[in-house]
C-alpha cells in the first residue's frame, strides 16, 4: 500500500513560494516536542510523532496545517502512554477557551 504522506513523485501544481512568521502557539508546539524528545525527558521520539501524523488519515492530514498535525499527534501519543488522560485534557481545553473568551469581552 502507498500511504498518503508518502508523496514523492506524485503530480502536483506549482510550488507556491509562501511563508509566514511562525506564531507563538506554533513555536510552543515545536518546543513541546523538543522538550519531550530531548535526552533528559525521552518521553516521545520523532518517529512516534511522525507515526501519529501519518495515522491522522488523509482527510485530517490535508485539512490540518503543520502544527495542528503536530499537536494532534503529540496529544494522541501522550494519551496512549498514559501521561495525560482524555478527561483532564478536555477540562484544560475548556478552561483555555474560557480564558480566551474573557479576553474578547
Amino acid at each position: 500500500m502507498r500511504r498518503h504522506h508518502d508523496m514523492g513523485g506524485l503530480d502536483a501544481g506549482p510550488v507556491e513560494q509562501t511563508e509566514h512568521d511562525y506564531s507563538p502557539w506554533e513555536k510552543r508546539v515545536d518546543a513541546i516536542m523538543r522538550l519531550l524528545s530531548d535526552e533528559k525527558c525521552q518521553l516521545m521520539s520523532v518517529d512516534e510523532l511522525r507515526r501519529g501524523i501519518e495515522n491522522l488519515g488523509p482527510g485530517a492530514y490535508d485539512e490540518y496545517n503543520y502544527y495542528e498535525r503536530w499537536i494532534s499527534s503529540i496529544t494522541n501519543n501522550l494519551i496512549e502512554k498514559g501521561v495525560i488522560t482524555v478527561d483532564e485534557l478536555g477540562t484544560k481545553m475548556e478552561e483555555a477557551k474560557a480564558r480566551w473568551q474573557e479576553t474578547q469581552a
Partner: peptide, 11 residues
C-alpha cells in the same frame, strides 16, 4: 490552539 495550551499546562 486550545489543545496546545492544555497539553502544555498538563505537562
Amino acid at each position: 490552539m486550545a489543545m496546545a495550551e492544555a497539553v502544555t499546562e498538563l505537562l
